[in-house]
Computed example of a mutant assay.
Amino acid sequence: MKTITRTFSRTFADRNLGFIAQGHTPCTVSRVGFLLLDNFSLPCFTQALDVLVTANLISPGRVRVHTFSHHHAEVISDLGIPIRPDTPLTDIRLSDLDLLVICGGLRAARTVPNWLLALLNKVARLPIALGGLWNGAWYLGAAGLLDGYRCAIHAEQRTALAERTPRANVSHEPLAYDRNRMTSATPNGAFDMMIRWLGQGTTPVLADAVLDTLDYDRSKHRAFQKPQQPKLGKALRDIIALMEANLEEPLGPEHLARVVGLSIRQVQRLFRDQLNTTPQKYYFQLRITEARRLIQNSSASIFDVSLACGFVSCTHFSRSYSAFFGHPPSKEIRYDV
């Protein structure tokens, strides 16, 4: 029997595209290294790392992450929590990177050691982008690697960096992304920086999937990737809320229309004009999307999931699931077991 393939509308593509099988097309792998300095900002580091770890959860193997320290020794963060690097700081390891991020912090030393200056100048001669978290720009500037670049640094050192590196354009923004230099001054800036890197280093689709998975609604990211979703009117929002609250026993079109005081034809027009789909298709894609979430995040049986999401036939549910996701629900990844 021929396998039927179905696609999500734009609304649900954002929620599901990262989990849909993409065939055997070779994927771009982004290789990122974090050089941890003593008293580095753990919140900045974890915000950046969260993006990359989530990307690998959605699309395994798309990002390779390495952590380094000077002597491959344990490093104490600004919160007093020790982190043990996983990779020796060798020329071979560094040459394999696409991006090296210097992780600084409020109490990180202002004096730049000779080994770090030598390392940064060596890396700058390679086709590797350089980044900095919190005051990471301080070390890049000391090595002369920010001349002619915009950069971001925590407010504590902003004036000092501008005086010490007059050829750099020190920004007041939490993130500066300028060609092959990217620097952030805050944890949120670190998150934004990695999303930008992910969108360019792999695919914008994967960056969008990370944002959706982390429920991180940042229109400034999506603006350069795709048109934003239209704003929904109150009547349509009310209908969607009804659908979301009634997955196990889906409401009929007459019931939905009656609750919001509209005709079935008017409801159909709302979905067509604002979401470019039909109420039936939207409801169905909502149910199949929630079914995937339930499978991934619970130990419920496939049969119970199908009932919870309004599918009276387990066979129909399995066929529909395979059509959208490229595999049956029994093959879905479960994070709760």
Rank of each mutant, 00 (worst) to 15 (best):
N169C: 05
D50E: 15
F34Y: 15
R334E: 07
A118M: 10
C27E: 15
S171M: 08
L286Y: 05
H70L: 04
L35H: 00
Q200E: 15
R272N: 12
F284K: 05
I20F: 07
N276L: 12
I195W: 01
A323Y: 01
R265W: 11
P127Q: 11
I264T: 14
Y335W: 12
A108Q: 01
S95K: 14
E244I: 11
T111V: 14
G132N: 01
G310N: 08
K331I: 01
R62D: 15
I239N: 04
P43G: 09
T183C: 06
G144W: 08
E173I: 04
T11K: 15
L119P: 07
E173C: 08
A308N: 13
R218V: 13
L35T: 02
Q225V: 14
G80S: 10
L130E: 04
G23K: 12
F19Q: 11
M243I: 03
T183S: 06
D336V: 07
A223V: 14
T3K: 11
P166S: 05
I295S: 03
R272P: 04
K281W: 08
L206G: 07
L97M: 14
G23W: 09
M194N: 01
P174V: 08
L251P: 02
V305W: 00
E244W: 08
P43C: 05
A176C: 15
F224W: 10
H316I: 04
